[in-house]
Structure formats: C-alpha cells, structure tokens
Amino acid sequence: MAAEGAARLGMRHRLAERGIDRVLLLLVPAVLVVAALFLYPMLYGVGLSLQPRAGGGPFANYLAFFRDSYQSGTIWKTMRLALPAALINVGASVPIAYRLRGRFRGRRLLTAILVLPVTLGTVLVADGLLRYLGPKGWFNRVLLDLHLVDEPVRLIYNYWGVLFSLLITGFPFAFLLVLSYMSGIDPTLERAAATLGAGPWRRVRHVTLPLLAPGLATTFILAFVLAFSVFPSANLVGEPANETRVMAIAAYQAAFEKYDYSMASTIAVLMGVAELLVVALVLVWRGRFYTGTTGGKGS
C-alpha cells in the first residue's frame, strides 16, 4: 500500500518534471472545443471533398476545379486582390507609424482617427464607395469640375472598387500592428546610431527597418489573411460574375447555390492551402531576420 503510494508519487513527480501536472487540465476544455468546432469540421470537409457527388475517384473534384478555368481562375483573382492590398496596407503603415513613434501632442488622437475605420463595416464602406466614387458621386464631380477628366472615371463594380474597400478596412489593422511593433523598438538604438554619425536615412535603413522586418512579416501575414477572405465587398462593389469572382464566392456558390457540398469543401480546402502557402513563404523569409530581444520582432 505504502509502496504503491510512493510509486504513484514518483510517477507524478517524473511527469511534473516534464511539465505534465494537473494544471494542464485547464487546457482540456479549450482544446476540446477547438477540436470539436474547428478540427473535426475541417477533417470532415477534407473527407467530403474526396467524395465527389458525381463520382469518378477521390480526386475528381480537384481535377474538375483545375480543368475548369472559370473555377481555377479564382485563385489568381483572389491573389491579385489580396497581395497588393496587404502590401499597400503594410507599406503605407510603415512611414506613418515611423512619424508617429515616440510621444508628442495629439498622437493618441491621430492614432484613434486612423484606427477608427475598423468600425465602419464592409457594408457601409461598400455603400459609401458606390455613392462617393460612382459616376455621379462627389469624387467624379470634383474631377470633372477641375477638368482633370472628360467623363466620369469608372471605379466601382470592378477590380478597383474591391481593392479600395480592402484598403479602407484593412489599413487600420495593419497600421495598429506596425505602430505597436515600431513602439517596441528601443529608441536609444537610433540615438546611438545618430551619435555615431548616421544620417536619418541610414538610421532608418540600417537600424529601424532590420529590427522591424520580422514584425512587418507578421503584419503582412495577418493583413493578407484578412484580405484573402474578401467576400462581401467582392459581391457588393466588385464584378462578382467575372473580374472579382474570388475563391470565397466560388466556394459559396458551390455550397449554397448548387448545394454541392463536396465541391464547396474542395474549394475551401484549396483556399486554405493557397493561403497557407503564401503564409509559409513569408514565414521562411521572416526566419532570415534577427529575432533577438529588442522589440519590433513580433511574437
């Protein structure tokens, strides 16, 4: 009895040394919920995608997707929107965040103003774009009155409308993250560089940017993920039948218009794969940067 108790105690000690004890039980409910609501449906979806409705072997859906250029073209159409949107959002955030680092009067207000578009919601942005950039909208009126153009510029119901929508909704996120990483960089490093005689451009190029690069990669990934799932704006301000028929629309149509859940799962899986490929590429690239203890590195 006593020996058995000692053995159990020993076992518990050995497990505890490897970090396994009752505290880990706290993890169980969360993992179970994620497994049930995320992992199981994902695996179910993968399984479903391998059982085509029309038969013809497990990979028939995948083959059908890539053979039909109307379907496979959605990959390129999605990338063509998501990559520039993420790049512009991150790229524009850097100089603005650089100006806003440190403390000065009005910094908090300006930050809040730049972040507030997060709350607009895709529908208001879409509605606003349709009105503001439409042929009779204020933007075209100003251009016409200034005689910059002879006829209204077509900026809605095509690629540009969706891109603008992605820029407006995505920029605040990217900016917030970049600003956060930027504030994490120790300002004394830049001062040291200045003391050693580095001009402003060299300080940015050789001190700030290298420290910021990993954080920028993280921000790019998150901005890309956000832009990649473009769905409402592609429908509302885009040309969902043709130019902005993104993967999300293709998947939605397969599921809820053709009720072909197998094909819809196929497109969903391919969407995940295509997105994770880009994410993995960026992560590999990010791994080549310095990730020491001075901030700006991201998690």
Binding site: R18, L39, S229, A268
Partner: peptide, 27 residues
C-alpha cells in the same frame, strides 16, 4: 507549463486565427 506537444496545441489554436473564416466556415 512547458510540456511535450505544446507546439501542437499552439498550432491548433493558431490555425483558426490564420485561416480565412470561409475555409472552415463552409465545412
């Protein structure tokens, strides 16, 4: 805690944040 499989758990928790909602939303 640092335990065997922690990276796996972290990955499981990271994926829903990284994947576009439509991807897992449809299944």
């Amino acid at each position: 805690r640092d335990f065997a499989g922690k990276r796996l758990v972290t990955l499981l928790l990271l994926l829903p944040v990284l994947l576009p909602p439509i991807t897992y939303g449809i299944p």
